[in-house]
Amino acid sequence: MIKEREKLSALIITYNEMGYIERCIESVEFADEIIVVDSYSTDGTYEYLLAHPKVKVIQHPFANFTSQKSYTLKQATNDWVLFLDADEVVTEPLKNEIKEVLNGNTENVAFWFYRKFMFQNEALNFSGWQTDKNYRLFRKSKARFSDKKIVHETLEVNGASGIFNEKLIHFCYKNYEDYKQKMLRYGRLKAKESFYREKKFTYLLMMVKPFWKFFNHYFLRLGFLDGKKGITISYLNALGVLEYCKELKRLEKKNELAYYLVMP
């Protein structure tokens, strides 16, 4: 008896993703449903999605990545979900691996994806990203996003995991300013996460941590082999860490001020 293929929900969160989202949507049109949760984009992303015949788009305010992805996960009607970032693209060979899973040829409940990072339209082969992998395909009934992180969210899986051979294409770098704003935003969110966990700002942290980030990505993780691209990515990643330190300091000052204002 031939098993019926299980259905798949493709899930994406967006905010001002024109230039990325088009390729992402096109690559997941094989899914049985495509659901996008948009946090009130202002660049035409929402209008594009609204007009797309294969997409169900919902607008929902963004608090952090974990809460937004948890909300999006609840919208899926199928157990198997493919959760992508708006700047990720599923290749044809990877699509075939996913279809094998949907045909019932696995006992795994989740799958890791390695990613190939693209600097504009050129592959970034080193700079710390060569071993990057994330959960992207999983059973909704067997996984949840941990509430311990609000950026670089963590999926908790109840069951066995597999890993695909083919890589997911990640168009992480459209232009300098776009990537810079991403890194600054991640840095601020990471600082909030650390603040809630009662981690403290120190000037030593601000002096050492950004330098170490650059050194690690450019030298230890072989960013210099990516040429000028490696310098740019390593610098902007370090800038994100510097923003993390500055934001952590701002949050502590704000908290101190609030404390003194409420003192009798």
Rank of each mutant, 00 (worst) to 15 (best):
K142F: 06
I58D: 00
Y173E: 00
R197D: 13
A51C: 09
M18C: 04
R185I: 07
K200R: 00
E4N: 15
D178M: 05
L49F: 00
K3T: 11
N16G: 06
G187Y: 04
T72H: 04
K142A: 11
I34P: 05
I2Q: 15
F113M: 10
M206H: 11
P61L: 01
L204W: 14
Q130R: 13
A76W: 09
S194N: 13
L84P: 00
H52K: 09
I169M: 13
K182C: 10
F138M: 08
L82S: 03
N158L: 05
D85E: 01
I231V: 07
F195P: 00
E97K: 03
G19V: 15
H217C: 10
A51L: 12
F164Y: 10
G44N: 09
R221I: 00
K209I: 13
R136K: 14
E26I: 10
R221V: 00
N237W: 05
Y15S: 09
S194K: 14
L257D: 14
D43F: 09
W80M: 05
S234M: 02
Y40Q: 11
Y179R: 10
E100G: 09
Y114H: 11
S67V: 13
G104L: 03
K149P: 13
E29Y: 07
L168W: 00
E193G: 02
T45H: 02
L82K: 01
N125D: 12
I35Q: 08
E107S: 14
D79E: 10
N165A: 07
Y71H: 09
L94P: 06
Y203R: 04
K99S: 08
F214D: 00
V81Q: 03
M183E: 01
N96K: 14
I150K: 02
D132I: 14
S141K: 01
V89F: 06
S41V: 08
E88I: 07
S141E: 03
Q120A: 11
Q75M: 13
N105P: 02
K148V: 15
D85P: 01
K149A: 13
M263G: 07
E153W: 11
K199I: 10
A160G: 08
Y71V: 10
A160I: 05
R136Q: 05
E107R: 15
I98V: 02
M183N: 07
E22R: 05
L251M: 04
E193L: 00
T77R: 14
Y235M: 12
E100A: 14
N78W: 02
K199G: 08
D132V: 14
D38C: 07
G240Q: 08
E97H: 03
E177Q: 12
F138A: 04
D38W: 00
E4D: 09
H217S: 07
D79G: 06
E47Q: 09
W80L: 04
Y46R: 11
A143G: 14
N165W: 11
I58G: 03
L257M: 12
I233E: 00
K95R: 12
Q59Y: 07
G227D: 03
F111I: 08
D178Q: 11
S234Q: 01
D226L: 12
Y186M: 15
Y259V: 11
K199Y: 12
R197F: 15
A86G: 06
V262W: 12
F171K: 00
Y260H: 15
I25Y: 01
L261N: 10
E22V: 01
A51M: 08
S9R: 06
W112P: 09
F224R: 06
M263D: 11
